[in-house]
Amino acid sequence: MFDRFQNSRNALGLIFMLPAALLLLLFLTYPLGLGVWLGFTDAKVGRAGEWIGLDNYLYIATDSVTQLALFNTIFYTTIASVLKFFLGLWLALLLNRNLRFKSFFRAVILLPYIVPTALSAIAFWWLFDAQFSIISWVLVKMGIIDTYIDFLGSPWNARFSVIAANVWRGVPFVAITLLAGLQTISPSYYEASAIDGATPWQQFRYVTLPLLTPIIAVVMTFSVLFTFTDFQLIYVITRGGPLNATHLMATLSFQRAISGGALGEGAAISIAMVPFLLAAIMFSYFGLQRRVWQQGGGDK
């Protein structure tokens, strides 16, 4: 009897898993394997490649554009993630207070996150226009600058401009998820620490931060993952220009594989992202998680 139950449970489990598993095997697992294989071939669009060993990797390791893209990706991810973390945490703390219209604030703040990134990126492109940028207009009228800023024309301006757009889009996600974490912290901790004479800063440092650390680790890991593999913002705003200054690994692999037709080389660039991506994830997850036991929260 028990056996039959167990059997049917396994059989039923298999049937229930089937649609999801089939689709993921065909369109996720298989392409992942295929991507690794393509990286070792000279495949072009419409032509199956032949095994060429590590040639693609040797080429991209010496290719100055790929090196620049790697630098850009790391720079973009680091600066944007740090900004998103501090601004997001600040916004979460603001929203966690007893304010009027709190739920309204919380609702509208998520808007940048829910609208299609490609479309809001076009709005940023317009905001960063060299001739008609409203930002430059305001700054000129205020007498802060004399000439319009060429936001996307010079390498460093362009890098910081796309970072600004990325932070704009990512802050709501960080803020709202951290807010959910903040709301699980019991007010009695704050009352108890206030009675013991803790200043607001001490309350933040010794109550809020340690209790928030686990969720910070998870949220920032996701944020790093999405920032590192970002494609849309760059593709829409700069297409990697000027002079490849904003090319990320993802946009470069698109350019080489789809626009340029060199599937094998593009796949190699994609695959080359993986170790860096894993390192970034490990760093943000374990780096942030470690604080838990450093502050006496028990080893995890």
Binding site: L32, G35, L38, L263, L277
Partner: peptide
Amino acid sequence: SILFIPLASV
């Protein structure tokens, strides 16, 4: 953005 190249070929 890692999957799209091999997925395109699939």
